[in-house]
């Protein structure tokens, strides 16, 4: 009888804890809510008290958004960010999985591949600011201080983490699968594309999510690589920084532009929440 009660207790979900966590969750929502409310208000509705920042406006208006799209050239900068992010993701997945396959299948018996592995992975400890100063000169020298150069550097800088993740995963894929394909006369290339690449799907998801978040939100690398150019390759975060002075005290316009900049990644999160959380967790726990 007593045991039954205990089991019931275990199965009972706790309301007090739920309510406590919901209240704490407000701390996450308040800054976002405030940003949204200010973005739909007019400057005349901004008063100096708390209501000025947090109360809903009398008239909802999207005019701040249309104005922000015009002022920050939103479609152009968002297009640049999207282009850089998508290309980096595709390139990182292809390049990292390819070299990881070569490393994982040879590092047990060939010293050179073992060296490759540690060479790439040890780069994880090098902070970008350490390479930043010489890289700016080098990239300008090669005329790579543009979108393409930025993508190129994302491949290089994500290499350490991605190699670690892919090689770790590949070690657990039995070689017997490949061996039977080799006996049937397949080449190494076709084994990789037909057998290994599809099998790596869970890791592709992790690498894609990590690369996408890092590239989309990054400030420092585009800032040092692109600010020398004519500004046509400007990314979304960079545009926010450049237009900060133009917004002046028109906070409504500034916040409309912040919301616009946050919206794409929030929508992406709503669609692929599970994959994103899994990807980020895998990256930290396995890496």
């Amino acid at each position: 009888m007593k045991k039954d009660i205990q089991i019931k207790e275990l199965e009972n979900k706790k309301w007090p804890m739920t309510i406590l966590l919901l209240i704490l969750g407000i701390a996450i929502l308040i800054p976002l809510y405030m940003a949204f409310v200010i973005a739909i208000k007019q400057p005349s509705e901004m008063t100096n008290d708390i209501a000025g920042a947090l109360a809903l406006p009398k008239h909802w208006s999207l005019s701040n958004f249309t104005e922000a799209i015009r002022v920050t050239d939103f479609w152009h900068t968002a297009g640049n960010s999207l282009f850089i992010t998508v290309c980096s993701v595709v390139a990182c997945v292809l390049v990292s999985s390819l070299i990881s396959y070569a490393i994982a299948r040879n590092m047990q018996h060939k010293k050179i591949y073992k060296f490759f592995y540690y060479y790439l992975v040890s780069a994880m400890f090098v902070p970008f600011s350490m390479l930043m100063l010489p890289l700016v000169k080098q990239m300008a020298f090669f005329h790579l201080d543009n979108k393409i150069g930025v993508i190129f550097l994302y491949i290089v800088f994500n290499m350490a983490m991605n190699t670690l993740l892919y090689v770790g995963y590949l070690k657990n894929i039995p070689v017997s699968l490949e061996e039977s394909a080799y006996i049937d006369g397949a080449t190494t290339w076709s084994v990789f594309w037909r057998i290994i690449f599809p099998l790596l799907k869970p890791m592709h998801a992790t690498v894609a999510v990590l690369t996408a978040l890092a590239a989309w939100n990054d400030v420092l690398l585009p800032l040092v690589m692109l600010s020398g150019g004519d500004g046509k390759d400007t990314t979304l975060p960079l545009a926010q920084m450049m237009f900060q002075s133009q917004f002046g005290t028109n906070y409504n316009l500034a916040f409309a532009s912040y919301i616009l900049a946050l919206l794409p990644i929030l929508i992406f999160y709503l669609i692929a929440q599970k994959q994103i959380i899994n990807g980020v967790t895998n990256g930290a726990v396995k890496g």
Binding site: G25, L29, P31, N217
Partner: peptide, 17 residues
């Protein structure tokens, strides 16, 4: 899901807010 949201947002824009 809610508690994870701040992690996906860009640090620069969160800073402005």
């Amino acid at each position: 899901g809610l508690y994870f949201v701040p992690n996906i947002l860009g640090g620069l824009i969160v800073g402005y807010i």
